[in-house]
Design a protein around this nucleic acid. Structure first.
Lengths: 130, 130
DNA sequence: CTGTATCCGTTAGGATACTG
DNA sequence: CAGTATCCTAACGGATACAG
């Protein structure tokens, strides 16, 4: 399982951009949906799966799980498992993650100041069907 | 044309996150592939379509065009059309865009310092076919 | 030269059932 | 409680033809 089309232009472009600048790696981690919200919540001590799910209106188990795993892989958060019954798991932000949140905060301030009123970044759809 | 499934969970979640924090809007603009690279190139006075295409190994006309339009919509760059023959168009970064690049630069520095060695953010594929 | 329109494959995000 | 496995749909990124 988990095969990737290694020779597709899509993939090659991704690698090209990764090589070109680290910024692209950063944005590919943090630019995915829910990621920045979850990082900030964990930073604010919302440390458990169920708590995070409560805070994030509409996220599904699957997606939350994936994002948490990615954040652990990127070493932005850490996972601690308590072998109780029922099992308990806690996530904590790392020093690296904390630094990232600081920069994201600046990015947010930039947005508040500069994003045009009510901009909606719409997908560019081509289907003409209703 | 350009219909969007306004009631899909996908769309509703997007709106939810937009309302929740401006950061999500920012990341949705700048988190797309090529966007940050193009913004920086324009800032460095690579101002024409063909020049940008030369600098960005492998980008297609379609994609470059879309990204440029999005950057103009978000008011990060400006477009000036010179009605010559052949037509000439120049893009310039705005004050807002310039501020954004500053923050992105910090984000990049964070990445250089903190992204684990040779991390590859892989898509999680489920297809078992070769 | 500077794009836009169209088609297409791949991937992200979501729903749900199930497991330790 | 804290996930993982599976399936599904819509959106993204890319190739190409062609238009102003």
């Amino acid at each position: 399982m988990s095969k990737k089309k290694l020779n597709s232009t899509n993939t090659l472009n991704e690698y090209y951009l990764d090589e070109r600048c680290t910024l692209n790696k950063v944005l590919r981690i943090v630019g995915k949906r829910w990621v920045s919200e979850i990082l900030v919540l964990v930073k604010e001590d919302v440390s458990r799966f169920s708590n995070l799910k409560e805070c994030l209106n509409g996220i599904s188990d699957n997606v939350l799980s994936n994002v948490l795993n990615e954040l652990v892989t990127a070493q932005l958060i850490e996972k601690e498992i308590f072998k109780e019954v029922p099992i308990r798991v806690e996530y904590r932000i790392t020093a690296s993650g904390l630094e990232l949140v600081e920069v994201l905060h600046e990015l947010c301030n930039w947005g508040k100041k500069n994003i045009p009123y009510e901009i909606r970044i719409q997908p560019i759809l081509r289907n003409k069907s209703s």
